[in-house]
Amino acid sequence: MLQILGQNVLNALQLGSVYALIALGYTMVYGILTLINFAHGDIFMVGAYLSLAAAAFLLGLPLGLPLVVVFVGAMVFSMLLTALLGVTIERLAYRPLRQAPRVSAVITALGVGLFLENFTLGLLGPEPRHFPSLITMGVWEVAGLTITPLQVLIILGAAVLMVLLDLLVGHTLLGMAMRAISYNRPIVPLMGVSVDRVISLTFAIGSAIAAAGGLLYGLAYPVLDPYMGIRIGWWAFIAAVVGGIGNIRGAMLGGFILGAVEIFTPMVLPSSTYRDFVAFSLLLLLLVFKPTGLLGRPVFERV
């Protein structure tokens, strides 16, 4: 019993890492624009497909590249292109609405999401695509638990990205500018900072992290379809709200909580089909009792 529990904690950590990476994008954009970027789940989906394309291309080359090279290549390619996609979406769809009522921007975000889903569907067709396996399939036995190299890769990879982002927000000039914008945007140009540029970089970073999440997700659950971003996007969004939207560390915490909800629901309730019910109930309860989320106020903060 304890062994099953331990094994599931590991699974929850693996899934939670992916949710946390995507939740970061929601929370960063909300932190500086107070906009829920509902297209973010679909940006994650595009990131997963771009990883797949790069990996398939590199594997197809007659060079016999080592898998590490393929993995890193796919990650860099997909992060760069997805960052560009995020910046383009902000530039074309959200920036013209910066002064418009918030609801216009939210509806636009939903529209951008639909566009990405249907564009991918039109381009690639409805058949699910299989993600190539980029990591050897060994199994390690540690204290009665079976740990795969893939699990370690996902958990560590996500952890590295989260630590880097936390350092960026807490200790760099760009991070200071992001926090300043979330606190009092109109004043920021008086510091000589271009607000548009910081917002573009925020979209770039959030989208790149979602792309990394897409690659890691593809490795763990190797079937991609154009609508995969919807459910995962919602779950990551809930994770961001549960942790306290606008709060970077809250998004990470929320991601792991949602990962645990998904893994442990079938252990407690009769079927895994209850997982959405449990996740949304958690969200509603939290909004009633602690509307700002677990880690407090809706601003970029070092806790």
Binding site: A180, N184, E301
Partner: peptide, 9 residues
């Protein structure tokens, strides 16, 4: 006016 200090910095 109002100084515009960033309270979270």
């Amino acid at each position: 006016e109002g100084r515009g200090i960033f309270g979270n910095l």
